[in-house]
């Protein structure tokens, strides 16, 4: 269980909290987060075709790969490292409280 929380915190710090802190400073200074992933700096996205497919996939993968690895580590960690009974107690019962709790847990992970 300690291993799970350690992985989650270190992973999120590396893939999310630290880079987002720096991006927030950039956004505050420049009022921009850079070009759009859909159309860059243009009004129209590239024409339908292989070039558009490849460029988007590369840009998307480049943006998400660190978070993807952390997400898979945490997701598999939930299955392998956390006691099943523990998880069922907090997130297993249907109802509004459980839904709200899971929503609150999602805030720091920012995936």
């Amino acid at each position: 269980m300690l291993l799970f929380f350690l992985t989650t915190i270190v992973g999120l710090y590396y893939a999310k909290w630290m880079p987002y802190f720096h991006r927030a400073l950039t956004a505050a200074a420049t009022h921009s987060l850079g070009p759009s992933i859909v159309s860059g700096k243009a009004a129209v996205p590239p024409a339908v075709g292989w070039t558009a497919a490849w460029s988007y996939t590369v840009a998307y993968a480049g943006a998400v790969w660190q978070a993807l690895v952390v997400g898979l580590l945490v997701g598999s960690g939930i299955q392998a490292l956390l006691p099943r009974a523990w998880l069922t107690r907090f997130l297993g019962r249907a109802g509004f409280t459980t839904t709200a709790l899971a929503g609150a847990v999602s805030i720091p992970s920012m995936m």
Partner: peptide, 16 residues
């Protein structure tokens, strides 16, 4: 897979 409720799975997925 660890049997969280449907509402919990959806809230975590949408909340992120």
């Amino acid at each position: 897979k660890s049997r969280a409720s449907t509402g919990a799975v959806l809230a975590y997925w949408l909340g992120n």
